[in-house]
Design a protein around this nucleic acid. Structure first.
Lengths: 204, 204
DNA sequence: TTATATTTTATTGTTGACATAAAATGTTTT
DNA sequence: AAAACATTTTATGTCAACAATAAAATATAA
């Protein structure tokens, strides 16, 4: 539709990775499920080569776990203490990002963020929680990217993946959307400490 | 030799990855150097397949940077603020590790750590700073692994790689060895806060 | 001479076939 | 019947050839 965000051009491998991530986050692929390279190759209409690349990639992100000559399976969620560590580290990164930004966001950026907030609300209204997760990630990714480019995104992303955002914790969509809106508003008015506080409140 | 640590069995790909990491950390492969898959394949006597896997792996670790249809080159070192963030995050992980351990290390573990300290000293005496870096990493990895297994190691490792430990900064080998010995001694006597302090002092 | 278009070359991406190792199955022996 | 061994099957690891793409070199036009 007119005015929508331009569809990002993704390589074939990135698209497959994205699909598998979705499957894992949505629970469609449960922990310990073994991935079969041949099956995946057939499913995506490719040979095993690119599939292997994607598997290696997701393994590095912590979503899969691979064993030599055995294959890859969906990794189990982290235990509580590790989960806490992940949250801590991710908070560190996102706070860093906001401090780096300090007013470098343009009106265009804010329009974009507002749009993402709308999408988030929409996803909640449709009760599409996989989509909620995706949009939520894209919100944070936008900020991270603006602050540190691909380099920072690549550092940040594995933590998000390992956290496997658990949106069952959200009581209401409004509350979640509001949490994010607070971040945007603090950024817009240039209140760094308020923004970092809002981010910390959101990442948990 | 008798009594030495058992040589870890590494897959072919892991060995190649290790070699390339060495080359990058030692400066043998300077930033922006382009890697040629065919050349590497010939150098290691393999086909391009496994080489591509290794390249993907090192890209995920932040040592290389890859572009579609163009290839991979050695990534440049991070700017100061990112470097600070990395140090911060790595400290967080290592402090977490020590807190998790709280006295679960056995006499065998301490013997192992003492051995690593000797190796560290030996590397300094030989003025083999690439080896110094490797041994230093193995010291920290040992602790990280004991605390959180492969999962934690995999989270931790990319930060170490991105820091690109530069041991020219060490005025004397003794100082560096001492820093590590302090950590071991604090762990041995079960003084957690002392151990975390020592770790924080070492990671910078 | 510069700028643009075309061809060439080099390098990466992909594929299907083969080698090798793990898992599953079947057989023998106790 | 259970355990140990051998055989078959299945899946992953590796390879060499081919296709597709981007960079480099060359040719053409302004």
């Amino acid at each position: 539709m007119a005015g929508s965000r331009p569809t990002k051009i993704l390589s074939v491998k990135d698209q497959i990775a994205e699909q598998l991530r979705s499957d894992i986050i949505s629970g469609d692929l449960a922990p310990n499920t073994k991935l079969n390279e041949k099956e995946l190759a057939e499913r995506f209409g490719l040979s095993r080569g690119p599939i292997r690349d994607v598997i290696l990639q997701l393994t590095k992100e912590g979503l899969l776990i691979s064993k030599n000559n055995v294959g890859a399976s969906v990794n189990s969620v982290l235990d509580t203490s590790m989960q806490k560590l992940m949250i801590n580290l991710r908070r560190n990164i996102e706070v860093y990002a906001i401090e780096q930004l300090h007013g470098s966001l343009t009106e265009k950026d804010f329009a974009e963020l507002d749009k993402i907030l709308d999408d988030l609300q929409g996803a909640f209204e449709n009760e599409d929680y996989t989509q909620v997760t995706k949009v939520d990630i894209s919100f944070h990714r936008y900020i991270i990217y603006k602050a540190g480019g691909d380099e920072l995104v690549n550092i940040w992303y594995p933590f998000v993946m390992r956290m496997r955002l658990n949106y069952k914790r959200i009581t209401s969509g409004d509350a979640c959307v509001n949490e994010h809106r607070l971040i945007v508003e603090a950024l817009r008015s240039g209140e760094v400490s308020k923004a970092t506080k809002a981010v910390k409140a959101n990442i948990r």
